[in-house]
Write a protein that binds this DNA or RNA. Structure first.
Lengths: 336, 336
DNA sequence: CCGTGCTCCGTTATCGTTACCACACCGTAG
DNA sequence: CTACGGTGTGGTAACGATAACGGAGCACGG
């Protein structure tokens, strides 16, 4: 079915007896053109099998309607929710998300950012507030809005929509301590990669110190993303190395669920013998038995707020440059 | 930091004392240029803060290095795996995935396909083999490779990489029957939307009929995607409406896990009182207690094979137009 | 009857990169 | 010494849509 040559606006113009410019107007909503002319043009276009060519439009108008977005992994319900909220907010206005995966690696993020900027997006959204120096420079020099998410960066590049991962974990530690738990452990990933996970661990340590408790029960579950399986393995190690542990906070609901299943396989009662907390309010945490105490980071809201911020910026509307999201602690059966 | 005017290749050319054409060559790997010249150009580019402009390149070269992909939902580990495999295979060769979500709706798919084709991708990958007439026409007229996935279409548009959802479920029914189960139910979603889920249900009905068994135990769990919660609710309805059911096959591992938790909350032994089967080999199925019998649709492999097929097509290498994936039945504790 | 304001549409000149061709230079084989 | 293939570089002309500008047609009021 491939034609030798795809029809252009000029072809439609010839066929309809109007100028190319009028054809252009027919394809652009909100432009001054009579209904009759537009209908005739769209009909001719359909007959010729014409497909609007964004590449030419992009170059001439210097607008792509792309919004570039980097996330650590496509296979993570939290980030998927953020992208979902972002996508819904922006696609209603004709924007297209250009998505890239950093695989939890700042070097990869740098490559990705460079690649994405070449596409001339009209805004760029990155997950996290830690970047390589060159990535930072690229973002600073980009002449479009830059929004960091899922974090409260020490030195924001432009705008951000996020929350403090450390503070969020602190609120969970406070809950555990208030509930009477003292010997509390943390299961997390390799610190050098996942900076959000790393912040959560630091928040854990600081919060325990705050209560005058021992913060040495740290189990390294491996390289992010930490899977359910790795959560289970980590729980096995925790039970072996620190058998008297009363509660454990996991870097995510997924690892927390894995840890829970390990307890089930060993007949260790949860929360009777050990309480478990997760992070992220994944669906599984609300439905598993016992349900998991967790922190709702409001992933979808992060995406929606980011989307609305971008629209405000591109429409020259007044905007709030820094949006701080308030994570909510959700106490469920796994810790009571 | 926005400059009045971003530097172009011409600016670099002036600064380096070469022609714009040579600058162009410096940015394209595998082109005839001396190392010294290239290094000087790249250095000048870095100093000027130059960012390559794909939009102009796309127009001139009539190549975008985009591969368009539609999936039903971003928040689904199976499709995420497919996109992951696709992305990894293709990004190594410099291609960018352009992703869109149909939300399990063929009308939305049509809009999406039109939008994506305007970006002039070099190939388009769609999930599923059922489309609106117009969407089908758009794909047929697209002068680029079209690959349908996750299905074996009755009338393929171009190429496909997929499997028969009906046959896959049949193999699970055979397993249940062989294991001695007779009163078998199915939990699935609204038939009109998710065609893959619908095919699974039809496969279920056909397989039961094949064994001379009653296929009327069908629980409609709502509008796709079917969540864990909906799986749990469906299990509650199943236990109420057909209390003597011995086994149930769910449209996905997620709904199967939800169903399992409902049994746990009610103290219904699995598989002692009722056996459960899922679909998709999600991580949760392998780690929950009891682990779920499921079907591995090889989501990641679908993506990788699709990616390699695209590379073969774009490189004019000989290709196998139709790739049939063989789903594997995985028997676990939930059905034995 | 003309001036005024509005709607609709045509002409022209780019947007930044790259395909294509031409050509100069060098080393080497005949 | 000439012919020749390979290598590196420059000049020119698009790629297809659209911003900018202005012209033409029409209605209306004075």
């Amino acid at each position: 079915m491939r034609n030798d040559k795809a029809p252009t606006m000029a072809d439609i113009a010839r066929k309809t007896g109007v100028s190319p410019m009028t054809v252009s107007r027919a394809f652009k909503s909100g432009s001054l053109i009579s209904k009759d002319t537009r209908d005739a043009i769209l009909k001719a276009a359909e007959e010729l099998g014409y497909v609007f060519d964004s590449t030419a439009s992009n170059l001439r108008s210097q607008k792509t309607d792309f919004i570039a977005v980097t996330i650590p992994s496509i296979n993570n319900a939290n980030f998927a929710d953020t992208v979902g909220g972002l996508s819904e907010t922006l696609s209603a206005r004709g924007f297209q998300i250009l998505l890239g995966y950093t695989n939890y690696d700042v070097e990869e993020e740098e490559r990705l950012i460079e690649q994405l900027l070449r596409r001339k997006p009209q805004a760029i959204v990155v997950t996290g507030g830690k970047h390589t120096p060159r990535a930072r420079r690229l973002l600073e020099n980009a002449s479009v809005p830059v929004i960091e998410t899922w974090d409260v960066p020490a030195e924001p590049i432009g705008h951000f929509v996020g929350f403090s991962n450390a503070d969020a974990v602190r609120s969970m530690v406070d809950h555990f301590v208030a509930a009477g738990y003292r010997r509390i452990a943390f299961i997390g990933g390799d610190a050098s990669r996942d900076t959000r996970g790393s912040d959560r661990r630091l928040g854990f340590i600081a919060a325990l110190a705050n209560h005058g408790l021992d913060a040495s029960r740290l189990i390294d579950a491996g390289v992010p993303p930490i899977s359910m399986r790795e959560g289970a393995n980590a729980m096995a190690r925790l039970l072996a190395e620190f058998p008297d542990t009363e509660a454990v906070i996991c870097v995510s609901d997924l690892s927390a669920f894995g840890a829970l299943t390990e307890c089930q396989r060993r007949g260790v009662p949860v929360p009777g013998r050990i309480a478990i907390g997760g992070f992220g309010d994944y669906e599984i945490g609300g439905i598993c038995v016992p349900a998991l105490t967790t922190i709702d980071a409001q992933a979808r809201q992060i995406g929606e707020r980011t989307g609305r911020l971008i629209l405000d910026l591109l429409d020259d509307r007044p905007d709030v440059p820094h949006v701080t999201i308030e994570p909510r602690l959700i106490v469920r059966d796994s810790s009571r």
